[in-house]
Design a protein around this nucleic acid. Structure first.
Lengths: 327, 327
DNA sequence: TTGTAAGCGTTATCAA
DNA sequence: TTGATAACGCTTACAA
């Protein structure tokens, strides 16, 4: 059995309370005593039992993450920085996949509620009502979704789209296709708005190709409609769709970017590894997740700052998939 | 505040123990009573406090996962099936990145020990001694690494390499290059052994290109040596390296597979999305992780089966990056 | 079938 | 600066 606080106490010849204090409030303990306690603990391999301390302090030492789909690189991209920052603050990370199911999400949140000190909801799919109905006392930070009264971290997709349009127009493109993502997507709505606004300010025109699944195959399915549209450039909902387009264009013998330019969105790690390196809108994943964790920790600590959402800039990364419009 | 077992008890007009039993051993409770308790619990939104029950049962309801690098798709690939299976068994998943640090791993394991009922160690980097020194009472299953006395899930890389060699030889390749991974890699050792054995049985020869980092950039760096080697086919340590090779070959104007065939290893999701779809050795990720979870749950339950490691088959997936050897 | 009471390992309060 | 003691919310003998 693992050593308990009492084992350490008797080994060090002090009471359990002193051992407890030696770890949680060292300055309340005499220097010499503290040394003895530390030694005894070391010798016995004592580690405080988090369940027991949590029972009384009400803290678990865990933070939870809920994402719609762990198979989507967009969501796994944040894992490394998130885990790292959590550990830095001495928290463990509890991971949950909501299977893109809006109804499952609130259930998962409630289930996790007792086992974490706070939650990061990444692109939650649940309705605004469900989001508002979440236990008020539970610290929650959302990413990529705005929730009134809760801290959230957003990225400026609209501006990213503006940059894309400027880039394409500068290259001479005047007819630009857009492959939309799933119908209900909030991120999609933001991108489209930004896109339409930017197009409106330019002398180019936008051809909407319609909604497609946000995966590689979705891009494959959209390729022929894009070719039929007569556009010289296409902007995809996200990088995976762009990669799907790219693959199908190759299959059709359409050269990128000589005949057609392709732009993705998000800049997940693999975009740079594609056959034709993808021009895309870069989301500052590491920064976003750092912000989210910091906001969450502040909320857990009771510093209810951040009434305004944090909005992070995006920027265009021009790689090999875009070039001058063909004449 | 969240409702406690006492709140439910008084709401249902029974004692706390009855409420407890109604959830943990329903058949010990009268039907009518059970109904009243359930109703009251529902009404109050009661969820048992895991810390409190864990304190007495000694269970946490968590299983931990330790991986070397959360930014590596090879490790994120298992997340979805792992999380899913864990949830199916009513466990939460606690995620940890060991930063490829052999010394950090045992520390993390010990830290997690108190907070999980068992651990899955994915490709642990620590030494055999450190592995053997881990707390004996802690249920642990390793993936991709054999540990005497512990259940582990392995995949048959040697046979995968055998299949690759047969495939390439059948296509007429007689001079085959191998780009090795990091020097200490155990997976690499297995692959190389299988490779050498298979080459030995064939009439082809193997050109070893030397050790490279197991990432996209490692592949880029290996590309020129491969070209200089005169090989007509190259097998890479893993898919990322293969993708790096592919990209650099494209840059050098070398056509794949017309002039050179390329083979990866693992079949992470992105291989099928590369510009030239990659021929690779497929690791049955979902099956492997299901096995690992099942072994872990059995070990937690005290069914110390599985003295023998589970060894899963791999299979070659021939895609577009391999073709007949040039004359 | 149900209730009473003890105790899991810790922290917090209070007194010394 | 330290120690007794009472919680925290739950499960589990044991008794009824």
């Amino acid at each position: 059995m693992a050593a308990t606080i009492r084992d350490v106490a008797s080994a060090a010849g002090v009471s359990a309370s002193t051992v407890s204090r030696a770890f949680t409030a060292p300055d309340l303990v005499g220097e010499e005593t503290r040394g003895r306690v530390r030694d005894a603990a070391q010798r016995l391999g004592y580690l405080p039992n988090r369940q027991a301390s949590g029972l009384i302090t009400g803290r678990t030492g865990n933070i939870g993450l809920v994402v719609p789909d762990l198979a989507n690189p967009f969501y796994t991209e944040i894992l490394k920085p998130l885990q790292s920052r959590a550990r830095g603050a001495d928290y463990e990370l509890v991971l949950t996949d909501s299977e893109e199911d809006p109804e499952l999400e609130p259930v998962l949140v409630r289930r996790l509620a007792g086992q974490v000190d706070g939650l990061i909801l990444c692109s939650p799919r649940m309705s605004d009502e469900q989001l508002a109905d979440l236990p008020a006392g539970l610290p929650i930070v959302t990413m990529y979704r705005e929730v009134p009264g809760r801290p959230c971290v957003l990225v400026d997709y609209a501006d990213g789209m503006e940059q894309v349009v400027r880039h394409l127009v500068a290259l001479g493109h005047r007819r630009i296709a857009y492959v939309a993502g799933p119908r209900g997507s909030r991120a999609g709505a933001l991108r489209r708005e930004g896109l339409q606004a930017a197009i409106g300010r330019s002398d180019a025109e936008l051809v909407e190709i319609g909604h497609h699944p946000p995966h590689f195959d979705g891009g494959g399915a959209a390729a022929d409609p894009v070719l039929a549209s007569g556009a010289t450039a296409v902007i995809a909902f996200n990088d995976l769709v762009a990669l799907g387009l790219l693959a199908m264009f190759t299959q059709r013998g359409v050269r990128v970017p000589a005949e057609l330019s392709v732009v993705g969105c998000d800049d997940v790690a693999i975009t740079a590894m594609a056959g034709v390196p993808l021009t895309t809108v870069s989301v500052p994943f590491a920064r976003a997740v750092r912000n989210a964790v910091d906001l969450l920790l502040a909320t857990i600590a009771g510093n209810d700052a951040a009434p305004r959402p944090t909005r992070l800039p995006t920027h265009l990364v021009a790689r090999g998939s875009t070039g001058p419009a063909p004449r």
